[in-house]
Design a protein around this nucleic acid. Sequence first.
DNA 1: CTGAAAGCGCTAACAG
DNA 2: CTGTTAGCGCTTTCAG
Lengths: 355, 355
Amino acid sequence: MAKRRQAVTIKHVASDAGVSLQTVSRVVNKEPGVRPEMASRVQASIDKLGYVPSIAAQRMAGSRSYLILALNDRERTIADWRARQGTDWLDQMLLGGMLTCAEHGYRMIVELVDTHSDHIERELMGAIAALQPDGVILTPPHSGNPLIINLLAAQGISFARIGSLTEGPGIRLIMDDTRAARIATEHLIAQGHRRIGFIAGPDDYELSAWRVDGWREAMAAADLEAVDLLGDGDFSYASGRAAAQALLALTRPPTAIIGGNDQMTLATLDVARERGMNVPRDLSVISFDDTPIIRLARPPVTAVVQPIAEVSARAVSLIIADLGQSPHDGTPVTVAAQLTLRESTAPPVAVENGT
Amino acid sequence: MAKRRQAVTIKHVASDAGVSLQTVSRVVNKEPGVRPEMASRVQASIDKLGYVPSIAAQRMAGSRSYLILALNDRERTIADWRARQGTDWLDQMLLGGMLTCAEHGYRMIVELVDTHSDHIERELMGAIAALQPDGVILTPPHSGNPLIINLLAAQGISFARIGSLTEGPGIRLIMDDTRAARIATEHLIAQGHRRIGFIAGPDDYELSAWRVDGWREAMAAADLEAVDLLGDGDFSYASGRAAAQALLALTRPPTAIIGGNDQMTLATLDVARERGMNVPRDLSVISFDDTPIIRLARPPVTAVVQPIAEVSARAVSLIIADLGQSPHDGTPVTVAAQLTLRESTAPPVAVENGT
DNA sequence: CTGAAAGCGCTAACAG
DNA sequence: CTGTTAGCGCTTTCAG
């Protein structure tokens, strides 16, 4: 392979325009203090020669790398890819993140990191040393990991934390899971449901607890008993089955169940079917994730739609702003999730009395 | 933002190990000509300090960038993301590509490029100048684009072309669409079908024609007439509807239809349902894409499973090999697709005579 | 087998 | 407002 060098460098532009390297650099970086006529002359040469700065050189010279790292959980991401169930968390993230990056001349690089590894630190530092990203986007469960957060802060890298409210450095963004859970629960209550179950996610995802909180709040506000209606899951289909089975085997089973994510909701649907129950007639179901599998299920499932693309876009914007003049003030940013009604929810056949 | 420098550089390692920069460099790059004891001493310092080379510096100094660019069609990719139908082409590509990259110390960067733009050249050159990737993976319809191919070849960049057999430079990889289409068709013939329709994709995808070829071959081999059974589509749902409607409105309609991709197959399913036909009793259907939407359809659809992850993995391996000692010889690489039987295919109710 | 010198493309810090 | 100088971290020569 022939040794490849930059085809057209800042030098070519400088000599073509008859100015110094520095002037070209200033024009490229839109720095002030260049006479308009000079600037347009330089710009003309840039366009003519098709000059594009090398990010490697820019980074080397102490400027930016124009790279933003999106850190995702390795195990879960690979499992989702392999399962081919249409889980599109990462896709939505790319949609929002990549496009926003592109608008600002940045690129997004996806990096998978083991959550439960004892050498997260080495992995992360390796990626940072190799790539020298200007910013990092953390997704759950990394976004709440103090090790990662402090490491990034120590490196002086701008980073966004999606789905975490844990105190600490970094730009925090949430989708207000508590509110979304409350709205979902209220919707069921408004339909006449009194016994509403909730299948929670695992503890290492902060949002698991938030969702439970929203459900609890709505139940309490309506004076409904919730204590025995909380199912225990870990986001997996199997855990969803177990939780749904336990809930439906109660003496006074719920007439509606909210699943903490799509897989557990799907499991609930299957368990209900196996028990000869019709959804939504005998059991209403709401999912806390609007993946294709939920949309294509029979019946199509009412779901909380997470604005992942929008959150990612915001995360990128905020990181880039933070890099520049307007450092982030630390206030968490909220992007509202929505409840999309479909055919899996209906008033209960026989309304029971709460408590 | 504090100016960030490499935390630990080759210099630190060199002084820690008491050797020259050069020796460290040789150890890092596994170059021969370093005494084992020396090498292990250096390696110890590397591990101790957690040194990771900066790819920016490596690239600057004329070495590799350890970056591989995955070029995808912008319009289609974004449309798929927005539609949230679970299309996981890109995900499968990342699965195979990213993991294989990681094994070799490379990173994969996804880049979206407009196919029909008149400035593809500028876009591509911009990405290359900015990132200086060591390799590029081209997906349809880019993989057959002579402008792109020649540009890459002129730059001396290793690149893989997935789904294109057009003559020219680059490592070609295909999934043997012709064979897959033949197998799908043969399966239907074996079930007793004589009138088998095929809905083709758009011309700018070479594989569209290959799939049609496989169907034609199988039909011809069984002495079946095919000429009036070719539907015209462009991979969109709407085009699939139109084609399916046209086919089913024939005087002697097909008893089975193979859709050129998932959306067109889905459209076929819907059209059949609207006409009061039961699948598979009144119409057998096979999809040429095994996306979640096809797997979750009612009934679950028999489909050709494209080994996208495997092809991407191979593409990365071949590019990296090409970069090193074993330049690729130009022979197209084939990875076989498989037919996964589900519930959308059955023998026809009344067997007609072909021709 | 190992080291020293030069330079990749660019920007920061100074001068003019 | 513009140009000059000195590196950034690494690999490539080319000497020892």
